[in-house]
């Protein structure tokens, strides 16, 4: 009698499990509600963070990490070349300050850096630095770019060495 009850209980769980797994996989794989808009936003964030020098002194701060080679009469902006001083400053911002200094359109944002290992010829699997939100939720879009850190940067006591990095910009929410 007991065995029959147990078998019946387990059998009844099968459709629940199948349906639950199906629902979770659908949820995880579901496209964002407006992927093109989010993708455009991600491109805007990438452009501001890595192609521009930012505006670090105004009240409406804009985060931009691009290195500027300055002279007396003019300057050269190096897109995708990260100024270590600006990176340290961005890492010391609160999440609220960081998010508000980017054109995220209200979405949450994360910028991760993965160092290139010269000896193995591979990029590290573990992020050397994460700017922005440490957790992700909801739907997400991302863009991957390659950057050069133009000097050593010290963040939270850890030193990020000069060199090539993969940077991943992820927007999420909804």
């Amino acid at each position: 009698m007991g065995t029959r009850k147990a078998v019946a209980f387990l059998a009844s769980l099968i459709p629940v499990l199948v349906f639950g797994a199906f629902a979770m996989s659908i949820m995880q794989g579901q496209a964002v509600r407006n992927p093109r808009a989010m993708q455009e936003t991600a491109s805007l964030v990438v452009a501001q963070v890595f192609e521009g020098p930012g505006n670090w002194n105004s009240t409406e701060m804009r985060v931009g990490l691009a290195l500027v080679d300055e002279g007396v009469n003019y300057s050269i902006i190096w897109p995708y070349v990260v100024d270590p001083v600006k990176l340290e400053r961005a890492a010391n911002m609160t999440y609220g300050q960081f998010k508000s200094a980017l054109p995220t359109g209200g979405l949450d944002v994360r910028v991760s850096f993965y160092r290139f290992n010269e000896s193995s010829g591979e990029f590290s699997r573990r992020a050397s630095l994460i700017l922005g939100s440490k957790v992700t939720r909801g739907f997400a879009v991302g863009q991957k770019v390659y950057v050069y850190l133009a000097g050593d940067a010290t963040v939270n006591g850890n030193t990020m060495g000069e060199g090539l990095y993969r940077a991943e910009v992820t927007l999420f929410g909804g």
């Binding site: 979770m24 739907f139 997400a140 879009v141 991302g142 863009q143 991957k144 770019v145 992820t170």
Partner: peptide, 19 residues
């Protein structure tokens, strides 16, 4: 459960080339 990051193929390809 983590959201799967959606990457626009053409935009992602251009971003890699540009950077």
């Amino acid at each position: 459960l983590r959201p799967q990051v959606q990457v626009d193929v053409a935009q992602g390809r251009y971003a890699v080339a540009r950077s």
